[in-house]
Amino acid sequence: DWREIAKLAEEALKKQQPVTVNGQTFNDPNEIKKLLETAQKAI
């Protein structure tokens, strides 16, 4: 669910920690931002 992904990505950016989505881990803040943008577009 994109809403859940957006929430996870936002928290990861705030806490500056990696986030795992669908078994894929994102460590890079730039990648997390991209993930968040993608999720927000999909909602």
Rank of each mutant, 00 (worst) to 15 (best):
T20G: 03
Q24Y: 06
V21W: 02
K41S: 12
E10Y: 06
T25M: 12
A9G: 03
A39P: 01
T20V: 13
A42Y: 06
V19G: 02
E37A: 06
P18A: 13
I32K: 03
I5W: 00
K33M: 11
I32C: 01
A6M: 13
G23I: 00
K33Y: 05
L35T: 02
D28S: 05
Q17H: 13
K33S: 10
Q40F: 01
K41Y: 00
A42V: 12
A12P: 00
L8G: 04
E37K: 04
E37T: 07
F26R: 04
L13S: 03
L13M: 09
I5P: 01
I32S: 00
L36D: 02
E31Y: 08
V19K: 01
V21K: 02
E4N: 06
E10M: 07
N22M: 13
T20N: 09
E11S: 06
L36P: 01
K34F: 06
N30R: 12
K33A: 13
N27C: 04
Q17V: 13
A9T: 07
Q40I: 15
L36H: 04
I5Q: 03
A6D: 02
K14M: 12
E10Q: 07
L36E: 02
L36R: 03
N27R: 13
V21F: 04
E31K: 05
N27Q: 13
E4Y: 04
N27T: 09
N27P: 06
K41Q: 12
Q40M: 11
F26D: 03
E10A: 07
K7Y: 11
P29R: 08
A12C: 04
D28W: 05
N30V: 15
V21D: 00
K14H: 14
E10W: 04
D1F: 09
E37F: 00
D1Y: 11
Q16M: 14
V19L: 12
K14T: 14
K15D: 10
E37Q: 05
K7Q: 15
E10I: 08
I43T: 08
K14N: 15
N27S: 13
L8W: 07
E10H: 04
I43G: 07
N27L: 13
E10D: 10
V19M: 11
E4M: 03
N30F: 14
V21P: 01
Q17R: 11
I5R: 01
A9Q: 01
I5A: 05
W2S: 06
N27G: 08
E31P: 01
E11H: 06
T25S: 10
I5L: 08
L13D: 03
W2T: 05
N27D: 14
N22V: 05
Q17I: 14
L35H: 02
P18L: 05
P18K: 09
Q16I: 08
G23S: 06
A6G: 06
L35F: 01
V19Q: 01
E31A: 11
E11L: 03
E4I: 03
F26N: 03
P18E: 09
K34I: 14
Q16C: 11
Q16S: 13
L8R: 10
E10S: 07
N30D: 13
P18H: 09
A42L: 10
L35D: 02
T38D: 12
D1M: 04
K7S: 12
R3N: 15
N22F: 08
K34W: 05
A9Y: 08
Q17T: 14
L13F: 03
K41G: 10
N30I: 14
K41N: 14
D28T: 08
F26Q: 04
K41A: 14
V19C: 09
V21H: 07
I43K: 05
K7E: 09
P29G: 07
K33H: 11
Q16P: 07
Q40L: 13
L13H: 05
G23A: 04
A9D: 01
K33V: 12
K41V: 12
R3E: 15
A9S: 05
A9R: 00
E37W: 00
W2Q: 05
E37C: 03
A12R: 00
A42K: 10
E4L: 04
K7R: 15
T38C: 12
D28L: 00
T25I: 12
E4P: 04
Q24S: 10
L35K: 01
V21C: 04
I43L: 06
K14Y: 05
D1C: 04
L8N: 08
Q17Y: 10
P29Y: 13
T20I: 14
A39S: 06
K34R: 11
K34Y: 04
V19F: 02
I32W: 00
G23Y: 01
Q16N: 14
N22I: 06
D1S: 09
K15M: 10
K41D: 09
E10G: 05
W2Y: 08
K14G: 12
L8A: 14
L8S: 07
I5H: 01
K15Y: 07
A6R: 08
F26H: 07
G23Q: 05
A12L: 02
K33L: 14
P18N: 08
E11M: 03
G23W: 00
Q24F: 06
K15L: 14
P29D: 08
E37N: 07
N22D: 07
T20M: 10
W2N: 05
P18W: 04
I32E: 02
N22E: 07
E10R: 05
I32R: 00
R3W: 15
E11F: 00
Q40Y: 06
Q40K: 15
T38K: 12
E4R: 02
D28E: 11
T20R: 10
Q16H: 14
A6Q: 10
I32V: 09
V19P: 01
T38S: 12
T38Y: 06
T25W: 10
V21R: 02
L36T: 01
T20W: 08
W2M: 07
N22G: 11
Q40N: 14
P29A: 13
I43A: 08
E4K: 05
W2C: 08
K15E: 12
W2E: 04
T25Q: 13
D1I: 04
N27F: 15
A6W: 04
K41P: 03
A42Q: 14
T38A: 09
R3K: 15
T25H: 14
G23P: 01
T20L: 09
I43S: 08
N22H: 10
D28C: 04
K7L: 12
